[in-house]
Amino acid sequence: MSKKRILIVSIILIAVMVMISIIPINNYFEEKQQKQKELNRTLSNYAYLAQNFTLGIYYYELDNPIQVEMFPTSRTQWKLDRWKMVTEILPIIEYPEELIKENAWIEVSDNLERNIEHYRTYYDSKSKIEQESLIRPDAIWSFIVRNSRWSDNLLRALDEAGIDYD
């Protein structure tokens, strides 16, 4: 009888010990996975910025913490010139000269996205008929970043202002 009891008690003890040890191991792997996801997201963000503004990237450190420096290439100016043209016909879009000079490209990109959203709020507040003669908010990003020509209103506004975008 007592032998059986010892056996049961020891089985329970072992089970409890296994459970206790599994929790931290599990946490460790979950944390690791989470960190990897964050790293991947950060790396993707840099790639996205580099593509949008044709920037160069120097990777000092690719692991925790990621350390990179971004810099303009010969192609960046061309995109910024288009950005400046848009500010002349749409004053709601600003050109963050200081941030651009500091190579603070994350903030630079955020600035453009934020201003386009402000403009979108204004655009959405107008009636459908009024919207037809306005520049579509998505056209701004496409014009600056993708060199897209699909917005007649944007191109017409540039023409009227006498801005040469070719």
Partner: peptide, 12 residues
């Protein structure tokens, strides 16, 4: 293998 440093530029 581990990347110790890397650089990327516009392909000119």
């Amino acid at each position: 293998w581990d990347i110790s440093r890397a650089t990327s530029e516009f392909l000119s």
